[in-house]
Design a protein around this nucleic acid. Structure first.
Lengths: 326, 326
DNA sequence: TTGAAAGCGCTAACAA
DNA sequence: TTGTTAGCGCTTTCAA
């Protein structure tokens, strides 16, 4: 295994001081052209790369971006991560991805490890719950919150989805079709997003003068499983004729439950999903959904990340979701 | 913004030497229990975390794993990345993800940046082409190759899919249905996987005594777009009655082209995809496909990564794909 | 134009 | 049991 190539090893190789090598490689003006060329040439031959740890120790920016997501299988998160990763490639940033599974302990561990490597900025979907530790680890990091908002002890820019109109539209659409028993599956009150989506659903019922049916309103920790479980129950009980989902994971879980009945989404139960993975257009006659504009969200995150917007502000950037009826 | 907490700052705070702090925090035996407790207590209060850069500079392992994938939107890669990320959480490893888009220049850049941060191990889907630079950057890193195999100047463990039987089965299945004009869209000869899948397709034709139709065999750089373009053309020309895909991206691209015709996959053209994203069961009457066991692949990668298997061997780990007819 | 010294945070080795 | 020194790779500051 070859020895690590450092400015010192190059200096020794060339019989000059390591400072000259350093200056040559960083294009400092005070180096003779001949020297600089020789150094660069030799560095290339030996396969020199600057040691990031040494730079970090000196206090240089680490060029590391942390991304915390519940998972990257859900197409929304996958798309978001994909776009961010491509942007990071373009800006020569390292993207470190941690999956939280929406569990706060995982979030804390992930943030601790990012703290260790002196991460520059963090984009995160905060998990349900509160965490002192997370706040502590984020003390010296600039943070962008996504989808949900949690208090981390100081203002942070936040990228939210304004889905209330679309959710109300969803209810209105179903009501117009004659549905009276509309189920809702969404995140619970732990989450800002859970609260606002449920409120929008209720508002939708109110506006269409439908009565709220408590046993058809299911909330809980947002997960695919949770969506699946509740959807199965609702399908079994046959008390609902339509269903609205309030969450990316929940939507796919519920859709899975619906599909396993072997019937088309619209025959058994009018289904309105959340998020718009590519395949929603291909399933059955197409899955109606509350579509969230993932690319704009991701570009905004990149914008905030790369300082075209002020990362220190507590501005909330809202992106409007829209109901797609298929 | 608070000052960084270091062993020295804790030492000063406590009026002892930084070495005692270091020893206390790393549970070195030669520290009085009282001292150790006091140090740990204070460290917790101040929110101390060990500086990874300093550790790395001393030559400690960086606990960083690099993952190079074409993208993470395709559900196969997303699943793989998800599983690896979870495994990395469990082992307290940092997962740095780089997307190559199957472009060799991107791969080189990604590997250079991983080299800079002294990445421990790399799991990669090698891009088409050859690269001196990649070889150089991987000189001191242990590498696991995935899906495809490229010469990087020394043996590496490799995780491959043995899809030849399934692809032959696919042709046999279509032939048994009476198809005589079967198209194939797959990666080109740049890739080990491209070569072997095409060979399997041809062998399938031979075994069923079908004639190879050159204009129905499409190869090229593997991408969603490529799959879509070729599938569109084939659908337009109406020369084929069936289609077999040889690649994850290609399969989704081709499926997209098929779906945009507005007809069910089996009505227009018998379609056999590659990889088995969850939604293939939900589209039309279900999409037949060459299913690749993604979880076992990912677990094997983790196994190799965490040393339960020998990462220095050049062993090829093959996972058998199977034809799923829906 | 080049070089020597110092220091970022950490721990092995040696000293007390 | 605790402390001092040195050095990992790099660049800033000062000296030649």
């Amino acid at each position: 295994m070859s020895e690590r190539v450092t400015i010192k090893s190059i200096a020794k190789d060339l019989g000059i001081s390591h400072m000259t090598v350093s200056r040559a490689l960083s294009n400092h003006p005070n180096v003779m052209k001949a020297t600089r060329d020789a150094v660069k040439q030799r560095a290339r031959e030996l396969g020199y790369v600057k040691n990031a740890a040494a730079s970090a120790m000196r206090g240089d920016e680490t060029q590391i971006i942390g991304l915390l997501l519940p998972n990257i299988v859900n197409e929304f998160y996958a798309q978001f991560a994909n776009t961010m990763a491509l942007a990071c490639e373009a800006k020569s940033l390292q993207l470190v991805i941690h999956l939280t599974g929406d569990n706060i302990a995982n979030e804390e561990k992930a943030l601790e490890r990012l703290h260790q490597i002196q991460v520059q900025r963090v984009v995160m979907v905060p998990t349900p719950g509160k965490s002192e530790k997370s706040v502590l680890h984020l003390r010296d990091t600039s943070v962008i919150q996504l989808i949900r908002q949690r208090d981390i002890g100081r203002p942070t820019p936040t990228i939210l989805v304004d889905d209330s109109p679309a959710i109300r539209d969803a209810v209105a659409h179903l009501a117009a079709q004659g549905h009276q028993r509309i189920a809702y599956i969404g995140a619970d009150k732990e989450l800002t997003s859970g609260r606002s989506r449920l409120a929008a659903f209720r508002e939708g019922l109110k506006r269409t003068e439908l009565t709220e049916i408590p046993e058809l309103i299911c909330t809980g920790g947002p997960s695919k499983e949770m969506g699946q479980t509740h959807a199965r129950r609702i399908l079994n009980e046959k008390r609902a004729t339509a269903m609205v989902c309030g969450g990316f994971e929940i939507s796919n879980g519920a859709l899975g439950a619906l599909m396993e009945t072997g019937l088309q989404p619209s025959e058994n139960l009018s289904f309105i999903g959340y998020g718009d993975p590519s395949f929603y257009t291909w399933v059955g006659r197409g899955i109606s959904t509350v579509a969230v504009p993932v690319e704009p969200l991701a570009y905004k995150a990149v914008d905030l990340l790369t300082g075209r917007a002020d990362p220190a502000s507590d501005h909330i950037h809202r992106f409007v979701a829209s109901l797609i009826v298929r």
